[in-house]
Write a protein that binds this DNA or RNA. Sequence first.
DNA 1: GTTCAAATTCCATTATTTGGAACACGGTTT
DNA 2: AAACCGTGTTCCAAATAATGGAATTTGAAC
Lengths: 265, 265
Amino acid sequence: MLSRNDETKTEKDTGTLGKAVAVLEAIALSDTPMRFTDLLTRVPQPRGTLHRQVTNLIDEGFLSVNRDQTYELGLRFLTFAAKTWSKNRFREVAEPLLQQLHDATGETIHLGVLAGAEVVYLDKVESRQAVRMYSQIGNASPTYCTGVGKAALSTLSEHEVRLRLDGVEFRQFTPSTLKNIEALLAELQEIRDSGFAFDRQEHEPGIHCVAAPIRSQGGLILAGISVTAPSFRVSMQQLENWAGLVCDTAKAIEREINARLSPRA
Amino acid sequence: MLSRNDETKTEKDTGTLGKAVAVLEAIALSDTPMRFTDLLTRVPQPRGTLHRQVTNLIDEGFLSVNRDQTYELGLRFLTFAAKTWSKNRFREVAEPLLQQLHDATGETIHLGVLAGAEVVYLDKVESRQAVRMYSQIGNASPTYCTGVGKAALSTLSEHEVRLRLDGVEFRQFTPSTLKNIEALLAELQEIRDSGFAFDRQEHEPGIHCVAAPIRSQGGLILAGISVTAPSFRVSMQQLENWAGLVCDTAKAIEREINARLSPRA
DNA sequence: GTTCAAATTCCATTATTTGGAACACGGTTT
DNA sequence: AAACCGTGTTCCAAATAATGGAATTTGAAC
């Protein structure tokens, strides 16, 4: 569908709602507590306007104020997220298969889906809940340095990948993080050939993984699963040995999803 | 715009935003997948209007469409929730103390805050992650049948409680669920006297707990913590023994919060 | 190929948001 | 005490974005 400006990207302010979201993002992205005036400097809006928006967001529970007049994201997000998560059909279908993969490997399993230029983690299976709960689920990570991200991107054409990552900066998390879009495209081609992706400590030092892509609903959902492990305990060789298993699981999830979602059941 | 009841409580539609939220709630509350026409029957809006609202919500990532044209809550909620949770100062401060309480009792600890007539769980500490992650955190439960809920309510006057619970139906989850506001008020008085609350299998059969209230930021935050256990393993007597510990922890959290939040640090 | 219901788009009307400026409040300085 | 300043809050005519009835497209079933 030909929208207003199609050639570039998703546009900014979807009217009133878009502006409200801009406020929420400003608060979400800052790492220091924000007072009203701080917000004012980050959101290009006059005082009166911003104040009313903030008030509305508070009324709806998407923001809350501390006594020192700093703002925090509101509990409403937790409530909605709980519903989002528990009712997500994709996650629901994948869950038992992720569990199987965990049982087979003994390592942490991630399920992530592509959202714009990032990958959002939808589920995680691990034995000991060492890390706190929301630590990973819901997290948005870059695509270019994660196994799941690269796997998911590999289902797209070079052109589509360029479009999607347009303007994304290749932040160097570790020495092995890919440097630019060309390096990424080259690796994506390898992934297309082999059917699976590695993250060779590209996002976090000492952590690597093997991942496989999932493409569902005729490309509406692009996702991936991975087996993640610390490099001191699990070798690259071991990851390679798991690759087939990961791919099989991905394919199985794909089949399940398409079976359950294609008809209007 | 003549709203129904203006003088009593918070009103409904905070303009455009409120309507958008109404759409999201309609989708969140239904247990069956919703198509466009289904939505139309639940949200009192003309086709054109609703359609544009839905489109905007999709653009922002708060909704997503499946191929069969059913709607789901979008991943954006997970992303925001992850931020909400990890940056929540209250939770952050309480966390180590909850952990201590868990170590001392060996049972599941909940931290919940009052939001309107409900209590939303902010954190949970348990040894084995038997239940899946979003199972409890972010969940909104009634106040009148949960330990945390009753504890939190006990910090309010009778009048305030009546206001807050105005229009809330006392759903009978179990035989011991409180029947009405009078029964609740009577019990709240006992809780005020003793300083702690019980949930005597009032929400879920076989599950009971002991809870204590937390009041912070001059009443801006009303919350509670609880030690929850299955009744077959932990007796009411044991819960009573823990009551003092729970109260102490609640008080400790209260002090921590007030120390950290009162000045404009 | 036709039919029908559902989803989507259109656009003049209308209601809501806007934003500048005035007001209120708490703390600090003269 | 009084003037001051940096906040946050409220107001209201003007501007803009949302509205909703009707027309158009889509797509599945016959």
